[in-house]
Design a protein around this nucleic acid. Sequence first.
DNA 1: CGCAAACGGAGGGACATCCTCCATATGGAG
DNA 2: CTCCATATGGAGGATGTCCCTCCGTTTGCG
Lengths: 225, 225
Amino acid sequence: METTADPSAARPLRRDAERNRRRILDAAAEVFADHGLGASLDEIAQHAEVGVGTVYRRFPNKEALIDALFDDQLDEIVSIAEAGLAIEDPWDGLEHFLRTALERQAQNRGLKELLLGARMGQQSGCAIAGRERIEPLVRALVERAQADGSLRPDADTTDMPMIQMMVGASVDYTREVDPAVWRRMFTLVIDGLRANPGARTPMPSAPLDADGLTAAMTGWRPRRD
Amino acid sequence: METTADPSAARPLRRDAERNRRRILDAAAEVFADHGLGASLDEIAQHAEVGVGTVYRRFPNKEALIDALFDDQLDEIVSIAEAGLAIEDPWDGLEHFLRTALERQAQNRGLKELLLGARMGQQSGCAIAGRERIEPLVRALVERAQADGSLRPDADTTDMPMIQMMVGASVDYTREVDPAVWRRMFTLVIDGLRANPGARTPMPSAPLDADGLTAAMTGWRPRRD
DNA sequence: CGCAAACGGAGGGACATCCTCCATATGGAG
DNA sequence: CTCCATATGGAGGATGTCCCTCCGTTTGCG
């Protein structure tokens, strides 16, 4: 046993192998973002212009690929919460978090599923850790905004993930038809969250027309449990 | 050809056959309500204590069973909208419709899926018809409440089904953990819908605790498309 | 009693998904 | 330039789900 045991520098990958590793990671990021964690590895391999076998040479299984991929994306959500706390006005901080996190989830279905609980058989370990880091930050955002009197006092920290999941559902419902209408739903929720609702937030996007609604409906599949 | 062509009285079913037909319909109603339209016919047959073959003798396929079952349930939603229009106060009428329809959908996953667009391969014909009957009623509810000044003027008829679908998602998210918390989300949305939000609706249900939230998350599966 | 009607449930057929296997191709050390 | 450890692709095995059919057996009822 002469080889160093350092796992991080076990041995440099052959050039083509390294190139393919990147392609796989890039493709996986894109496919998971577009189609959610349910996307098949065959789909990812195809998107990466690589055989499935190559994917499995590099990542022992689907979950390992997901973990490798989403570690930093979860960090990003943490940063959003921290940025919210850095905003002086407590209400603006909370709204910033909710809106920006939702924006991320609108762009990235995989992230949403990881964050809100989709478990790939087992929970992906990094998702649990991520949620544990986020929770206290959200609690702080909520308490601060309530102390300030801007957030209705009967709202609760646990309502925030539910809001994310709920508005997130409207994102998925309309993504193919009009990727912006979900902001209307978000506006309703935000305005419903204010303690002192002097101002209605103006609707940020045109409503769906009747055809658009029909299209959203026909493209929708409810979850199977 | 002596038999009458009247399809409704073609020939009385044998007693056992008639009994089983009812059992199937009852079982299907219950299973679809609990598990959504994705429930398998095997599951329904088992629930009805009947062989799958018996189900197929009575209904040519799954869609026929669904149509036979949900025709009147869609009527019920129409009635809810009509009842809303019968209420003097336009705002109360709209809120009545939204809340009561959601209540129905919380009790009946199958109904929700049919109403909001789950298509079984093809659209179930009766669902389309149902939606067409409901749409003008909802439009009337919305316009009336806007004319009255109680509903925010930038809300649109097409937002209403989206609200149904969105809050409906929170119903599904938490159904196993606490079948009442979705009302909190509904409260937020309703309050966000008011034009003149003098009063916040009090939260009608306790928030989820941390464990409950985790349970909701782990029990959740996002849709596969 | 006898037969048309009804029954049950195994299993065919169609998919979808994860992952393995191995014949072939290739980077790069010597 | 050679040679082989490393890497590759993608067919296909294993598993699982679900719709629906088929047919040997049972049963209501004239």
